[in-house]
Amino acid sequence: MSEALVFRFDVDGEDFTSAGQASVIVKRNLRQLGIDSEIIRRVSIAMYEGEINMVIHAGGGVAEVRVDEECIEIVLEDHGPGIKDIDKAMQEGYSTAPDEIRSLGFGAGMGLPNMKRHTDSLEIFSTVGVGTKIVMKVYNKVAS
């Protein structure tokens, strides 16, 4: 694995039930690359939360996963409403998701905290009315 591998996905904002497909494909691809299973678990959970967020709040977006020897980087970009108060959004239990989303078992205010918990770094770039970009990194223990 000398060059970085890049997987790119369009996340469909209309279809809540298919959200998670990109994460499942990433999980399978990482497994084929022989990545450690706990690393795969962390990457796929963080990415799934990101996908769900893009579907709930932003009408979809683009997810890109770069894999090299040192690190797995997940970049999520959308043109949704942006995050007004990032500090609040990072608090467990804080959510602006609508009720119908809660009835499906989401909207518990755990999305961003889960993404932080499962990654080694999380950066959020968000402008209200323009969109949000999230960059997460998980370092590959096997290579270190």
Partner: peptide
Amino acid sequence: GDLLSWVMG
């Protein structure tokens, strides 16, 4: 658990 994000976390 029934809240999916809690379960994932």
